[in-house]
Amino acid sequence: MIERFVVVPASYVFLLRPGTGDGDEVLLQLRQNTGYMDAHWAAAAAGHVERGETAYDAAAREAREEIGVDVDDLSFVTSMQRTRHAELVDERIDFFFTCRAWTGEPRIVEPAKCAGMDWFPLDALPERVVPHERFVLDRLGTGVESYTTFGF
């Protein structure tokens, strides 16, 4: 019997607010103790989609669990099929959302996994951002395709 490969789904939420200049700012967290891209900035809320859960539901749940906010309105940005071509990892399907309205004040809820949280202008992101997330962030507001690939 041929074994099928496994695709791992995840949802990402980029909280956006008007910046002090012309563009928007995005809330990012500094990863630590996760075993993946530690010491890199990443979406403030992200995680795997659980069995029986939609990508939208996962995004809302992750926002509550990781930054303590209830998202009022999620806007779908793109889905990304990705892999790390040279390494043996599961293939991934990621769903990216933005949110401009939420209830609660974003805060670090999981300090063991998050070394910091800050707002950054979209046109002045920190140097170390998780690469596939930066791919999406660099294209926000420029008409990013509804389906993208990364790592092939």
Results as ranks from 00 to 15, higher is better:
residue 51 R to A: 07
residue 131 P to Q: 00
residue 77 V to C: 03
residue 92 R to F: 13
residue 65 E to N: 15
residue 69 V to K: 03
residue 138 D to Y: 04
residue 45 A to K: 14
residue 75 S to R: 08
residue 21 G to Y: 08
residue 28 L to N: 09
residue 13 V to A: 01
residue 149 T to N: 05
residue 135 F to T: 04
residue 20 T to V: 09
residue 141 G to W: 10
residue 69 V to I: 14
residue 97 F to V: 00
residue 101 A to D: 15
residue 49 V to M: 03
residue 51 R to N: 09
residue 151 G to I: 09
residue 101 A to R: 14
residue 77 V to Y: 00
residue 61 R to W: 13
residue 38 D to A: 00
residue 117 M to W: 13
residue 123 D to N: 09
residue 30 L to F: 06
residue 66 E to T: 05
residue 35 G to T: 07
residue 29 Q to P: 09
residue 144 V to Q: 02
residue 110 E to K: 12
residue 27 L to Q: 07
residue 27 L to C: 02
residue 74 L to P: 15
residue 106 P to R: 01
residue 5 F to T: 15
residue 54 T to R: 10
residue 124 A to Q: 11
residue 149 T to F: 06
residue 123 D to T: 13
residue 8 V to C: 03
residue 44 A to Q: 07
residue 20 T to R: 12
residue 68 G to P: 14
residue 80 M to R: 04
residue 85 H to P: 08
residue 49 V to L: 04
residue 142 T to D: 09
residue 4 R to M: 11
residue 138 D to Q: 12
residue 71 V to W: 11
residue 65 E to Y: 07
residue 82 R to W: 11
residue 119 W to N: 02
residue 99 C to A: 12
residue 137 L to D: 08
residue 125 L to C: 07
residue 58 A to D: 07
residue 71 V to C: 04
residue 11 S to Q: 10
residue 90 D to P: 14
residue 78 T to R: 01
residue 35 G to H: 07
residue 54 T to S: 14
residue 24 D to Q: 08
residue 80 M to P: 15
residue 73 D to C: 04
residue 71 V to P: 15
residue 50 E to D: 10
residue 57 D to M: 01
residue 37 M to G: 03
residue 148 T to S: 09
residue 118 D to H: 07
residue 73 D to P: 10
residue 10 A to P: 15
residue 137 L to Y: 09
residue 104 G to V: 10
residue 42 A to W: 05
residue 112 A to K: 13
residue 90 D to N: 15
residue 70 D to H: 11
residue 121 P to M: 00
residue 39 A to C: 10
residue 21 G to N: 09
residue 103 T to S: 12
residue 142 T to I: 01
residue 86 A to N: 09
residue 13 V to H: 08
residue 130 V to H: 08
residue 115 A to E: 13
residue 110 E to H: 12
residue 121 P to Y: 05
residue 29 Q to D: 08
residue 113 K to C: 06
residue 107 R to M: 03
residue 12 Y to D: 00
residue 73 D to R: 13
residue 25 E to M: 06
residue 31 R to Y: 09
residue 95 F to G: 02
residue 40 H to D: 07
residue 55 A to G: 04
residue 17 R to M: 03
residue 107 R to E: 10
residue 4 R to H: 10
residue 106 P to W: 03
residue 126 P to C: 01
residue 63 A to I: 03
residue 31 R to I: 06
residue 94 D to I: 01
residue 107 R to K: 15
residue 141 G to N: 08
residue 97 F to L: 00
residue 110 E to F: 05
residue 57 D to F: 00
residue 64 R to M: 10
residue 97 F to D: 06
residue 56 Y to S: 02
residue 31 R to Q: 14
